[in-house]
Simulated assay, not measured.
Amino acid sequence: METFEYKTVTVDCKDMEHSQDTLTAQLNRWGKEGWELVSSLTHPYLGSSQYSLVGLAHRVTLIFKRLNQSGEAAQA
């Protein structure tokens, strides 16, 4: 029976605006390792930056999966 392993990564959207090429390169590296992006969740939060005192910002959690590399069945 096929089993999967999962990876979650949280990215701050304000950081992504300035480094989309870096994010793309990282996604491509994970893809070469067999990770497939299967979902994303957006999390709003109050934050601040050098451009605004306080505002609504977003973090995105990326959820990846790949076939279990260890060959062992996942424990329930």
Rank of each mutant, 00 (worst) to 15 (best):
M1F: 14
E2V: 12
T3G: 05
F4E: 11
Y6K: 01
T8K: 09
T8W: 04
V9P: 02
T10I: 13
T10P: 03
V11K: 05
V11E: 07
D12V: 12
C13S: 09
K14C: 07
M16Y: 09
M16C: 08
E17N: 12
E17Q: 13
E17F: 14
H18I: 07
S19T: 14
S19C: 12
Q20N: 08
Q20T: 14
Q20R: 07
T22K: 15
T24V: 11
A25S: 15
Q26L: 08
Q26M: 12
L27P: 02
R29Q: 13
R29S: 13
W30L: 15
G31V: 06
G34W: 04
W35L: 04
W35Y: 03
E36P: 04
L37G: 01
V38I: 15
V38A: 02
V38T: 14
S39D: 15
S39I: 06
S40L: 12
S40H: 11
L41S: 09
T42K: 08
P44F: 03
Y45D: 02
Y45S: 01
L46N: 10
G47C: 03
S48V: 03
S49N: 11
S49W: 11
Q50H: 09
Q50L: 10
Y51L: 10
S52Q: 15
V54K: 09
L56C: 13
L56P: 00
A57F: 15
H58K: 07
R59G: 01
L62M: 10
L62S: 02
I63W: 00
K65V: 06
R66Q: 03
L67W: 05
L67N: 06
N68M: 05
Q69F: 10
Q69G: 07
Q69T: 10
S70F: 05
S70M: 03
G71H: 05
G71I: 06
E72F: 09
A73F: 09
Q75L: 12
Q75I: 12
Q75A: 13
A76Q: 10
